[in-house]
Design a protein around this nucleic acid. Structure first.
Length: 272
DNA sequence: AAACAGCCCAACCGCTATCGA
DNA sequence: GTCGATAGCGGTTGGGCTGTT
């Protein structure tokens, strides 16, 4: 039997989005909020399926998105989180404000994976590539293979050892000081996360800790609604300026309007 | 300058989780 | 408890871009 694909209807457009479509979608969501995605295309006057609209919004049009390459800090954070969470990109993305799961996934597959391989690390297991495969049981339960995330205990047992002193790597990508092995960053993260704002945010994240059932003290988010809002506005203006391509002035929101709509956006971000 | 190869990323596909009737 | 609808997630793909020969 199976469910009907959502995009197989006649007249439903696929492929790259046009600026006109973007404009319609942004307009609609800023004015009406994210309601049921299935209804969005119809209400917004788009010949797209709701799924496509949601993807376009979350991956490209959201005002709080950061654009551009991941910073080295962010990259290191992704590596660290991947070691813990596996290919759960949405969870990882949740720890990097302004980044999408798709973006991180792409970055992982195109940059980080190669980087790790070059460093002699298996990107799937975060273990040295030359390590004999005696731990089959562990690998079969690794996050990458669809199993549960490795527990901290398991991680500690596997004891990742990564040679980051490779001159090749150092010359090619100039890793920052904190670009140490996953093991190192993990083993020291409890001490060092106070220094790294990104790591600090991650380590302080209640949800992450809950999901992993780690035995760490639970601290509240280091960024609150106001932080979110300011970040959204910060990035929001840049984002708005990007819309000059199709004439931001044509949109139904001006900056005054945006200041109101940012509340809506923040509500979205808070899951409202 | 043209051809080719590799890279990058937006978008799609299919599956699972969740929720309500 | 079951079933269908919907949202969300992760894997994959295709086309444009960039670098190399």
């Amino acid at each position: 039997m199976g469910r009907q694909p959502c995009c197989d209807k006649l007249g439903v457009k696929k492929g790259p989005w046009t600026t006109e479509e973007d404009k319609k979608l942004v307009n609609f969501i800023l004015n009406n909020g994210q309601c049921c995605w299935r209804a969005v295309p119809k209400l917004a006057g788009l010949l797209r399926c709701g799924k496509s609209c949601r993807l376009r919004w979350t991956n490209y049009l959201r005002p709080d998105l950061k654009r551009g390459l991941l910073t080295e800090d962010e990259e290191q954070l992704v590596i660290d989180l991947h070691a813990r969470l596996g290919n759960r990109w949405s969870k990882i993305a949740g720890r990097l404000p302004g980044r999408t799961d798709n973006e991180i996934k792409n970055h992982w597959n195109t940059h980080i994976k190669k980087k790790l391989i070059k460093m002699g690390i298996n990107p799937a297991t975060h273990e040295p590539l030359n390590k004999p495969q005696v731990d089959t049981i562990e690998t079969t339960t690794s996050p990458v293979t669809g199993g549960q995330p490795e527990s901290e205990d398991t991680r500690a047992e596997t004891g990742l050892v990564v040679d980051t002193s490779s001159p090749e790597e150092n010359s090619s990508s100039s890793p920052p000081e904190n670009c140490t092995s996953s093991t190192e960053s993990r083993s020291t993260s409890e001490n060092s996360h106070n220094e790294d704002p990104l790591m600090s945010m991650v380590w302080n994240d209640e949800a992450l800790l809950d999901s992993l059932s780690w035995d760490f003290p639970v601290v509240e988010h280091t960024y609150d609604n106001a932080g979110e809002a300011s970040s959204a506005v910060e990035n929001g203006f840049g984002w708005l300026f990007e819309y000059q391509d199709f004439g931001v002035e044509e949109l139904d929101f001006g900056f005054d309007h945006v200041s109101i709509d940012m509340d809506i956006i923040n509500t979205f971000e808070m899951g409202g």
